[in-house]
C-alpha cells in the first residue's frame, strides 16, 4: 500500500498559513458582483433584448453616429495633443531643475482632483467670446466655446495627467549611461532622442494615449458646458445617452452605452496588449 503522493493537479489556491482568504475573497467578490457586475450585465442584457434590427437602427441613426464621431474624433485629437505636450511636460519635469518644479509637478494632477463640472464652467468662462482667452481668439476668427474645438480643449485638460503620469516614471528610469554610450558611438542629441529615447518610451506613450483617449470618449461633466451641445455639431455620445434617458427612450440610451462600453473594452485590451508585448520584449 502506498500513500498517495501530493497531487500536483489543479488547485484553486496555493496553501498558505495566512488566514482570512475565504472571508476577504468572499466579501470582495460579493461586493464586486453587486456593485459592478450585476449592473453592468443588466446593461448588456437590456441591449441584447433589443434585438439586432432595433439595435442596428438606433446605432446607425444619423444623430447617434454623429455623436459617436464627435466623441471619438475630439477624444482622439485631444489625446494626440496630450501625447505631444504631455511628453514635453514630463521631460521638463524629470530632467530640468527649476524653482517651482515640485509645484508644477503637483499641478499636473489637478484634472484628477478638480470636479469635472468645475473644470467645465471654468473653461467655458475662459474661452467664451468675452472670456480671458476667448476675447484674444475672437479677433482672429477662432471660436472655441460652443464648438467642437471647445470639446477638444476640455478633453486636453482632462487627459493631460494620464499621459504625463504614464510617461514620467519610465523617463525617470532611463539610464543616463544609455545616452552616454549613444554619444560615444557618434550620435548627436537629436539622434539620441529620436532613435534611443523615444523608441524606449513608445510603449508608455501609447499607453498614455490610450488612457487619455478612453477617458476622453466617456467624459461628460467638463464637456457639456463648453460644447454648446448642438445636435449633429457638438453633441457628444454621453450627452446623447442622457438626452435619450430624459426622453424615457431606454432602448436608445442602452444601445449607445453598449457601443461605447464595447469600444472602451477594446481600448483596455489594446493597453494590456501593448504592456505585455513591451514587457516580454524589453524585459
Amino acid at each position: 500500500m502506498t500513500t498517495a503522493p501530493a497531487k500536483a493537479g489543479w488547485r484553486f489556491r496555493q496553501p498558505s498559513v495566512i488566514p482570512g482568504f475565504g472571508l476577504t475573497l468572499g466579501f470582495s467578490l460579493a461586493y464586486l458582483t453587486l456593485i459592478i457586475l450585476i449592473p453592468l450585465s443588466g446593461l448588456i442584457w437590456r441591449s441584447a433584448a433589443l434585438g439586432w434590427t432595433d439595435f442596428w437602427a438606433i446605432v446607425t441613426d444619423r444623430r447617434t453616429i454623429n455623436a459617436l464621431e464627435i466623441s471619438f474624433g475630439t477624444a482622439f485629437i485631444a489625446a494626440a495633443v496630450n501625447v505631444v505636450f504631455g511628453t514635453i511636460v514630463a521631460w521638463v519635469l524629470v530632467r530640468y531643475s527649476f524653482p517651482g518644479r515640485r509645484i508644477a509637478d503637483a499641478m499636473v494632477d489637478l484634472p484628477f482632483a478638480l470636479p469635472t463640472a468645475v473644470a467645465g464652467i471654468a473653461l467655458t468662462t475662459l474661452y467664451a467670446p468675452n472670456g480671458w482667452i476667448g476675447s484674444l481668439l475672437t479677433p482672429l476668427g477662432i471660436k472655441v466655446a460652443y464648438t467642437p474645438l471647445g470639446i477638444v480643449i476640455a478633453l486636453v485638460f482632462i487627459g493631460l495627467p494620464f499621459v504625463v503620469r504614464t510617461v514620467q516614471p519610465i523617463m525617470e528610469e532611463i539610464d543616463k549611461e544609455v545616452e552616454e554610450v549613444a554619444a560615444t558611438l557618434g550620435a548627436n542629441r537629436f539622434q539620441i532622442i529620436s532613435r534611443v529615447l523615444l523608441p524606449g518610451l513608445a510603449p508608455a506613450i501609447v499607453t498614455g494615449f490610450a488612457l487619455a483617449f478612453a477617458r476622453g470618449v466617456g467624459e461628460y461633466g467638463s464637456v457639456i458646458f463648453i460644447a454648446g451641445n448642438l445636435p449633429f455639431k457638438s453633441e457628444i455620445a454621453p450627452l446623447l445617452i442622457v438626452i435619450r434617458l430624459e426622453e424615457y427612450n431606454y432602448a436608445a440610451a442602452t444601445a449607445i452605452a453598449a457601443i461605447m462600453l464595447a469600444l472602451s473594452f477594446v481600448m483596455l485590451l489594446v493597453i494590456n496588449l501593448v504592456q505585455t508585448w513591451s514587457r516580454k520584449r524589453y524585459g
Binding site: 539610464d175 549611461e177 544609455v178 552616454e180 554610450v181 549613444a182 560615444t184 558611438l185 557618434g186 550620435a187 548627436n188 539622434q191 532613435r195 534611443v196 523608441p199 524606449g200 513608445a202 520584449r281 524589453y282 524585459g283
Partner: peptide, 25 residues
C-alpha cells in the same frame, strides 16, 4: 568605444541593431 559596467545596451533594439547603431547614426 566606451563599455559601461552595466553595458547600457539599447533595450528596444536587437543585438544587431545595437552593434550597428554607431554606424547608422
Amino acid at each position: 568605444g566606451f563599455v559601461f559596467q552595466h553595458y547600457a545596451l539599447f533595450r528596444h533594439m536587437t543585438v544587431a541593431d545595437n552593434i550597428g547603431f554607431g554606424l547608422k547614426v
